[in-house]
Design a protein around this nucleic acid. Structure first.
Lengths: 330, 330
DNA sequence: TTGTAGGCGTTATCAC
DNA sequence: GTGATAACGCCTACAA
């Protein structure tokens, strides 16, 4: 059976196709009554608009490309949720393009059909605008950076320095030596993220400002297993009570595991502060920094949609600040 | 300036739009001469067909969804290259949908506009067909599994058992004790891969068949740092010369690092055999199992395109076998 | 406020 | 072989 079209809906509702199109696009006031009739007809027919027809009629693709690094899952899932919600509300489709390495990016840039495919571009975590210049490709769609900051582009980013500071201030008030576990990121020159660096900077500045200092600082790769080993090394060397700031929840969890395995009491012998507030953090009682990731995504999408709607003003930067969630581990 | 359309091309070439469309789609014999004229006109105007118009006229989306786990990059980049090449040749677009966790998958399944978006479905590494049943969703597009095997579906997969066997056979001929480093995969019930299990099975069977046995078997997470530690532990316990089969190049590289750091000679004191043949394997002289990943992707795409073209026969399964590449480390 | 008609860039179906 | 021309499903004037 053929999919119902706007014509079918119009016929059933006893109105013209124009009216149906208007309710579809929230256009100029449609009378409440007819609007309901149309909506009812759409529901009855289980009608879904054909995006391709819309694209060709509108001369736009109604699609946004999202360039997304393939990394830690949780953060990007939440980010995508925020982005997708905003775009969906505006009836835009999202085409996700995972950036696995430079060759993938080049493939994206070189693609012909993709040019048709996107009215706008979201770049997550990496500021790829410079790359467009290098390749002498001009960015002919509006673009927005999310989870990254850049000059001359709209962007929405997390203030990781502030997050680190919050952690530092809180930590400085706790008893015993202060330690930290950092994440080592091995990235080439193109794919570079300053997230962990920023957290570290903020943390140090706050601890110093409080007249204290960080004793043991260890670095681990972003892996639970590796972190566990590093955590064990840390616990060997410290005295108790002590406080450890782990710059990612994943790392904090490994530390927590090791603390428990040694029969120590979290929040008493060892205070632990994470970063991310992953979904499981609450269940584990982890004190950590919560990030408004969905909001950041939603806002970034808003900035782009705004451009798409014709806004011509100067680039805007929206900063989002993590908040400390105190639970049992510190 | 407006993008050139098929009309513009037709006008410039002095032919009808029908003819242009025919050369675009490699249709019924177009005279060689006119074909050239058209091609020339297209080049001159820098014409690119508008995919949206095509979709609406053709009643198809000319798009394939690729459901892709977010994991080790290199393998999937190559896989995508193979897939994309085949689909591109057939003028199909590829919509990549990274599967970060179950929620993402559900979002995909529940999406309305995406239903329009795909004429076919490629599922990489995971056999998600069962999930469609559980959700009482019927798969209304043809689907193909790649890097996975499943009953009742077309699929193209790597014979990891055979790969393990090749490694085992080769290893069994070398001097000294035989060890192995396996990869631990922590996956939930939905996202489950048998790759490493298969490699292990093949390896064991071949070693046994040769009347030998595996001495030390260690497991590591899929992380260079963690593997290095495990490798160190292995080297502490073994005698030399010995042979180590690492079930992934990433692991083999860490082992190689550790071997070198200890002043041992690879291929002499410690023979190392990896698995994957990553691009850097050659430079490091790593003996490993090469996988025809691109071919597998290309073939999987072919199976799907064949269905799209109307093929109704029984499900087909294409098996690809890794081959041993002997270099300096073993 | 609402209906009608023209157009978007293709493909497909005819005649020629 | 090739050129008209009618779809395809929607949006957007323009008219009513």
């Amino acid at each position: 059976m053929r999919k119902p079209t706007i014509q079918d809906v119009a016929r059933l509702a006893g109105v013209g196709v124009g009216t149906v199109s208007r309710v579809l696009n929230n256009h100029t006031a449609v009378k409440e009554g007819t609007r309901d009739t149309v909506l009812k007809a759409m529901a009855q027919l289980d009608y879904t608009p054909n995006p391709h027809a819309r694209r060709i009629a509108g001369g736009k693709s109604y699609t946004i490309s999202v360039l997304l690094p393939v990394m830690t899952t949780e953060f990007y899932v939440r980010l995508l949720n925020g982005l997708e919600q905003a775009f969906q509300e505006a009836r835009y489709d999202v085409a996700i393009f995972p950036l696995m390495d430079q060759s993938r990016l080049e493939r994206y840039l070189g693609s012909h059909t993709l040019a048709y495919q996107a009215d706008g571009l979201v770049m997550a975590t990496y500021n790829l605008t410079q790359l467009f210049n290098e390749h002498r490709l001009k960015l002919n769609q509006p673009a927005v950076l999310v989870d990254a900051y850049g000059e001359g582009v709209d962007c929405a980013y997390m203030d990781n320095v502030a997050g680190g500071q919050l952690a530092g201030e809180y930590t400085a008030r706790l008893e015993g030596p202060i330690h930290a576990m950092w994440v080592e990121t091995e990235l080439d020159q193109l794919f570079t993220t300053r997230v962990f660096e920023d957290r570290r900077r903020g943390f140090h500045s706050a601890v110093s400002a409080a007249g204290r200092q960080v004793e043991i600082e260890l670095t681990t790769s972003f892996d639970a297993y590796a972190a566990r080993t590093v955590a064990a090394g840390l616990l060997e060397r410290t005295s108790f009570p002590c406080t450890v700031f782990a710059s990612a929840d994943l790392i904090a969890a490994s530390l927590l595991d090791e603390v428990l395995a040694r029969g120590l009491t979290p929040g008493q012998d060892v205070s632990i502060i994470g970063f991310d507030d992953q979904p499981w953090a609450e269940a584990r009682g982890l004190t950590t920094l919560h990030q408004p990731v969905e909001s950041m995504g939603y806002e970034a999408a808003g900035l782009l949609l705004n451009r798409l709607a014709g806004f011509k003003g100067a680039p805007r930067a929206r900063k989002f600040t993590p908040s400390l969630v105190v639970r049992q581990t510190a």
